[in-house]
């Protein structure tokens, strides 16, 4: 992980004090603006929840930040560096991570191999033709990550054989590989049982404090317990920003998103 530390210090020089900074980001699909003119700043280590109904543009926002899509206009800065036109893998190598709403895992490989690949993706030797030796630091690190998301018992099983909840846990392990500095969690609690949700909250709140994240979550219990600030999105625009308490009590938000039923 020496390479990443070197990268951290190199980037530290150009850092302007924000982990993620979006300015006027717009993404059009044909004539439809999935997100329009989104401006958003997240400090390093800050934990932000992004709320909004279906179609509010939350996942499109993530896709623009990770580089799955290029925005139609606007700029995206990651730790001060303009990454607007960078390919996804270059952003990941700068400390950005994400999880997917629908698990995107390597179903033909084992749990251990999935995590090992994630660790390898952000370090040197991605093209190495030599098998890792016993005691390879990345193997040790992947074993720790498998342990951290409580999958040690399933480490040699193929991902296609895992339960849904286990796949969600593995999804998080992949995002924690390497030296993440900022993570985008896309509905990590979707489809989890109440017990699994409690474990998820424990994993998220237990993250080292220098790791900031944005979490998209429909489950308000999860979202408001792990986040210190909230951004509400509506029809592709930023609608409100504030602390969880402010958002929860905001009459406009209640009317728009929480609805009467939530009281």
């Amino acid at each position: 992980m020496d390479g990443t530390n070197a990268m951290t210090s190199r980037l530290g020089a150009v850092s302007t004090g924000s982990a993620l900074e979006l300015r006027g980001v717009t993404k059009m699909f044909g004539a439809l603006a999935a997100i329009s003119d989104v401006t958003l700043t997240v400090r390093p280590g800050e934990r932000r929840a992004v709320l909004g109904s279906n179609g509010a543009g939350k996942t499109t926002l993530f896709n623009c930040v990770t580089g799955d899509f290029l925005p139609t206009s606007g700029t995206i800065r990651l730790f001060g560096e303009d990454v607007t036109t960078f390919p996804a893998h270059e952003r990941i190598r700068r400390g950005l991570r994400r999880t997917y709403q629908i698990s995107l895992l390597f179903t033909g490989l084992s749990v251990a191999d999935n995590v090992y690949l994630a660790c390898r993706g952000v370090s040197r030797g991605r093209f190495s033709l030599l098998r890792p030796r016993r005691g390879d630091p990345l193997l040790t690190r992947s074993a720790e990550l498998v342990e951290a998301v409580r999958l040690t018992a399933a480490r040699d099983r193929l991902v296609s054989e895992l339960s849904y909840g286990q796949q969600r846990q593995l999804e998080i392990a992949l995002a924690l590989a390497g030296a993440p500095r900022f993570i985008l969690f896309d509905e990590p609690a979707a489809g989890l049982s109440p017990t699994e949700r409690a474990e998820l909250v424990a994993i998220l709140t237990g993250l080292p404090s220098h790791i900031g994240f944005i979490i998209i979550e429909h489950d308000m219990d999860v979202a408001l317990r792990v986040a210190e600030s909230v951004t509400m999105m509506h029809n592709g625009r930023v609608f409100k920003e504030g602390t969880p308490a402010e958002i929860e009590t905001d009459p406009e938000v209640q009317e728009l998103y929480l609805g009467g039923g939530h009281g």
Binding site: D68, H89, R93, L104, F106, G108, L117, G121, V122, R126
Partner: peptide, 25 residues
Amino acid sequence: RSPFGLALQGTRDNPRRMAALGFNV
């Protein structure tokens, strides 16, 4: 079973995720 071979199998299973792990697919 080397990093290169595993990564290749990763691109077969899920190229988008491979890019999101820092690999140049």
